[in-house]
Design a protein around this nucleic acid. Structure first.
Lengths: 203, 203, 203, 203
DNA sequence: TATGAATGAGAGTTCATTCAT
DNA sequence: TATGAATGAACTCTCATTCAT
């Protein structure tokens, strides 16, 4: 007589909680979200959250780190297959915007919470940023060594411009209500930055 | 050896509280800061904070808005005196990094809290962003109309790149412990973006 | 010698908190009572109070409304079984004094807080007053229609006299330290009011 | 060029503050009223209130006591001139309803705050109640001694009925929005109670 | 007398976390 | 594993009262 109330797959609670957390954090912000909101959205009891995550902060960190891990791993692999420094940066721009553009909630959490978490919460996630930046910087360095990119620019500044431009595209997309496709702007951004980095033939 | 307990000038409480707020928020983040921390740092009673500010949130918004107002007003005036679109953007880059580079605490608050406040708190501060972006965008548009900047780029994307690059420079500076001079990088950033925007003569 | 710290039956917390609230409110008055006082007297944590009641005010309103509900329901049933209007009023007087005379704390809360709550808090409890008055008024009206009670008196005034007399008996009892039995005066009060209402044979 | 901002009579501040207090307390209740509300309504500074009254509570007590004093003094004098016990009670009913019916704010404060203040604040005002009751009781006793009133009723109970009936008329009037004239009901109330007290000739 | 800025104790309420079941 | 009732520390904000001017 009783229908199964929660026809969810058993064992998927971890992921359900994590997804719920991203969804709730995106909606109200990390600090205004309650653990019980997350639990409710994941259809588990409040206490169950603590069977999978040590505390509220770890929910955020895990969400960020997991996505970041996946992104950096994939990026690292893909970049190996690309020869040209410019091609690497172009691909990185695509991957960056793809990763966040394909999951709006995650993007919101990244754009809104990452900086704070990097400074005030566990600085672990900052390590990911460093890894990401390393990919960018080594591509730039490579370009400079090959004489393709200008050498009068400090590599770190260039990397900041590259990342900052992409990051702002995401922020802008996140705060915008018109849900345009984020990856569509990858080439434009890459164009601007690359052209800014490249050595001008006639100079 | 004992100094007078309250040798402060009367009437400066508003500013003292605001400065204390910026300082405390920079140190612990807005959400982890307690109003009593701010009051203590300003050497006033907890209740005094509420004589000058409606609530904790207004402390943050006032700090942000005040600085933003000053920046945008100044920028608007200065840009009027500059003819060339490229010159305008160069000057904007300098002003941006100067404004935040000259007050580290304020910079921390801006970089860490502005996004959140734009989304979750009063969207007033977002208006400032729009005004700032308008300055950038009209310079870019002007450059495009004069044939100096490429017209195949959407102005908004270009503006995002410009702002994003500067913004990331500040974030990077804020998270960095080596206290280098932020304005020193203004030209480099402007170079990259401008070169990325300019029409290449031989194309 | 040490008793088990929490030998309470589970599930009785709602009632325990409500009883504690009545007891604390009776002792110090609603406004001077702290929620933590109530929690302590109920041997629960402060937060637990809020699992059962939305806020401090609801504690008061629930206490009042619950008792009032019980009284009015019972009165309504009992009066149905009584034919004569005078008998109804006599019984009402007994029930009124019984209800409050059997729970001194509750009586204190009623006499001290009901008026204020009726005016300044949720006017819900005022509805109960209206229901109670309706019982009184319809008995009086019935007596007038039967020619037993004088018809030159407005029914509302008569009801106010009836209620006011009983109410003052309770207040007087509550402020008095000699703990006499409140129900003992029911007949005297009913006598006075009824005699005041009845049509005098020889007039 | 400047008009006199406060064309009040100097030296009337005491009374202005007291009137303001009654007005504010009537509107929001004693506990929800702020001293600064009272000061504002009296057009004085917050601190000035404390030049005339020790604290907020004293504002209430003074308002109540002053009015009570005036009432009891007047009542005492008037009653001396009246011979018959019934006449005394009739006059008392009129004075009671006149005193409160002529100042609605004061009536609200009396009906809403007097009980609480009698129990939880300085019990001073309770002394006034006693004095008032003494007037009532001695009239009743006199009536009993003269064989006009029934002697099988305890004088205190009779007094409670008399006072309670009047008190409820005032409360009812205060909570009622239709501003009928309170003194109009004095005779009806007196009729009921007196008839309840009087010895029936033919019994 | 009069002011009103300043004080700071105090209380209601929230919510992350725990733990007995 | 899972639950969710219970906990109690934490924190914002209010407001009666003071006091330097």
């Amino acid at each position: 007589m009783k229908v199964a109330p929660k026809p969810r797959v058993v064992g998927d609670k971890y992921q359900r909680i994590l997804d719920a957390a991203v969804s709730v954090f995106a909606e109200k912000g990390f600090h205004s979200s309650r653990v019980s909101d997350v639990a409710a959205r994941a259809s588990v009891a409040d206490g169950t959250v603590y069977l999978y995550f040590r505390n509220k902060e770890e929910l955020l960190m895990t969400a960020i780190n997991t996505a970041f891990d996946a992104f950096v791993s994939r990026a690292r692999i893909e970049l190996q297959a690309i020869e040209s420094p410019a091609g690497k940066l172009r691909r990185l721009a695509q991957l960056h915007l793809q990763a966040l553009g394909s999951n709006r909630d995650l993007a919101v959490v990244f754009q809104m919470e990452l900086r704070q978490s990097a400074r005030f919460l566990a600085p672990f996630s900052h390590q990911h940023m460093v890894e990401y930046f390393d990919l960018v910087r080594s591509a730039i360095r490579q370009g400079q060594e090959q004489g393709i990119f200008r050498s009068d620019l400090r590599e770190k500044i260039a990397a900041n411009c590259f990342f900052g431009a992409l990051d702002e595209m995401v922020t802008s997309w996140v705060l915008d209500n018109t849900h345009y496709k984020l990856t569509d702007v990858a080439d434009s951004v890459a164009d601007i930055i690359l052209m800014g980095l490249e050595r001008q033939a006639r100079h």
